[in-house]
Design a protein around this nucleic acid. Structure first.
Length: 293
DNA sequence: CTCCAGGACACTT
DNA sequence: AAGTGTCATGGA
């Protein structure tokens, strides 16, 4: 059997955030009974340290957990600090940019079940089928669709993958075409030298991408841990935990930017999005009692 | 049945 | 600038 296996201790509460296919080559198998994740790769690495480096980067293990929140956070918000402790091991993964771009374009005002179904449908219809052996058993999976595959899709067919929403299908096709033509260069946006505001501006120029989705793409796909997306749940905990109370009126553009500016008072600006991700999952699970990811 | 889900956008006050 | 309707479906 090709490939190598690697064990990683992980917090039992957050481990189920990690499942799926990484870079089309690496798989994660969850063990439901103990807090360990077995990572198995079909790809051959030069040596163990090359594999470890890839894992470390993908799971952002280079980010020291102790630096995610500012030191004064614990003193200012002792109750919240206690509450988030079980979630401190939550990681923001450095996922493939195009995959994240398309995935979050599917995540507008919908439940996670619908979002997940769209992505599964997209990979099944437009991805490439691979068959391999995983943990001694046959395993079939689809790669995430390439920009070329999505760019060449017919809207009336692709909308079957986007919850019957042809506006969304057209937006995804358009974004894919921009990537193929080179007028949207995700690697340029991923460059740390690119100002965050400018990168977001470029993403927002695409139809179907607003501020929130742009910030999600930056945080989860473009290695920008300072990007702080504000969705309905973030707004709730900003109001409930930090008294940023304008929970009642709609999230206008001005309101969105205003909230982001105030977030810098309580979180470290350079890791605000990373910290926000931890707060997000803690809020959903501990306060809202949600178990869906 | 109603309401809301990890929103964006056009349109109306 | 700040409120509405629309898009679409499923699960609570």
């Amino acid at each position: 059997m090709s490939g190598q296996s690697f064990m990683w201790n992980y917090d039992a509460k957050t481990k189920d955030l990690l499942s799926g296919i990484i870079d089309d080559e690496l798989y994660i198998i969850q063990n439901a009974t103990d807090p360990e994740i077995i990572i198995h790769s079909t790809k051959q690495y030069a040596d163990t340290s090359a594999f470890m480096n890839f894992i470390s980067n993908y799971f952002s293990l280079d980010i020291d957990t102790g630096t995610i929140f500012p030191i004064e956070f614990k003193e200012r918000y002792p109750n919240i600090w206690q509450l988030i402790q079980p979630y401190m091991a939550t990681k923001v993964l450095r996922q493939a940019p195009f995959e994240v771009l398309v995935t979050f374009m599917c995540a507008q005002g919908l439940g996670m079940s619908v979002i997940r179904r769209q992505i599964e449908s997209l990979t099944r219809e437009k991805g490439i089928l691979h068959e391999t052996v995983l943990a001694g058993r046959p395993f079939a999976y689809h790669t995430f669709p390439s920009p070329e595959a999505l760019a060449a899709s017919a809207p009336e067919r692709l909308k079957l993958c986007t919850n019957n929403n042809c506006i969304r299908a057209n937006n995804i096709i358009h974004a894919a075409q921009e990537v193929v033509s080179g007028s949207l260069d995700l690697e340029t946006l991923r460059d740390p030298h690119m100002p965050l505001a400018e990168a977001r501006e470029r993403l927002c120029a695409l139809p179907g991408i607003g501020m929130k989705i742009a910030d999600c793409i930056l945080l989860f796909g473009l290695n920008r841990f300072d990007a702080f997306p504000i969705d309905t749940h973030v707004r709730q905990y900003l109001s409930g935990w930090f008294s940023f109370g304008n929970d009642f009126h709609s999230l206008s553009q001005k309101n969105y930017l205003d909230l982001q500016a105030r977030v810098c008072d309580i979180l470290s600006p350079e890791l605000a999005g990373f910290a926000g991700h931890i707060l997000f999952h803690c809020w959903r699970k501990e306060i809202k009692q949600l178990n869906t990811y």
